[in-house]
Structure formats: C-alpha cells, structure tokens
C-alpha cells in the first residue's frame, strides 16, 4: 500500500455530508456522504488502488469518470468495482485488488 501526504480535501465553499468511516485493507479512514470511494482514498493519501495482472504494477485512478477501469477494487466483497463511480457508504469494506481479483 502506498500512502502519501500529498492530497487533501478542500473545505472552502462547501459543506460536506455526514462523516463516517470505511476500511481500506483493514485500515479505517474517514469518508463523507456523497464522496466516491476513490475520492475518500485519495484524500487519505492512498493512491494505489490495484496491482496489474501481469506486471504486478501499482495502478491508481486515471480517467476518474468510469471509462478506463483502472480503479477496480474489491468493494464489499465484489471484485472489479470501479472506485471512481461507487459512492462510499458507512462501514464499507474496500480492498486493493490484485490482478483479476480473488474471492
């Protein structure tokens, strides 16, 4: 897992929805109602969302609009779920996907 302190939520101009927690590979992070899973992870400095199948390289959000499929993760037990298109929900379990994903 790659963490950085390179990203942040912007608080000016906006009031977020209710705050809750989700877990990423067992670690608890905060998220807000209306945020996508990808936004919550990136705001927490968690950039690597999956590892590619053949080269086992780290991959992150790329297109951010549901087209490229790079942000596929295991979300609440479902593999190949796009983190950029999935709204975060309280108590959600998110796991870094390795290759095509395993159950």
């Amino acid at each position: 897992m790659t963490t950085t302190n390179t990203s942040a939520r912007i608080d000016s101009g906006i009031q977020r929805g209710a705050q809750f927690r989700i877990t990423i590979d067992g670690e608890s992070i905060i998220a807000f109602e209306g945020e996508t899973v990808a936004a919550a992870l990136i705001a927490a400095g968690h950039r690597t969302l999956r590892y590619s199948t053949k080269r086992k390289e780290p991959r992150s959000l790329y297109c951010g609009i549901g087209v490229c499929q790079e942000c596929r993760m295991m979300i609440d037990g479902v593999i190949n779920t796009r983190a950029c298109m999935t709204p975060a929900r309280a108590g959600m379990t998110v796991k870094t996907q390795h290759g095509i994903g395993e159950y």
């Binding site: 942040a8 912007i10 945020e35 705001a43 790329y62 951010g64 609009i65 950029c84």
Partner: peptide
C-alpha cells in the same frame, strides 16, 4: 499512481472537492 488525466483531476476537484 499520481499520473492522472486532467479531466479526472478536475472531476475530483470540482465535484468531490478533493
């Protein structure tokens, strides 16, 4: 990781405010 499309970064910024 850290190389994004400009559209993706803008979406994070203007919709998610991240």
């Amino acid at each position: 990781p850290g190389v994004f499309t400009s559209g993706g970064v803008q979406t994070l910024l203007k919709s998610q405010r991240v």
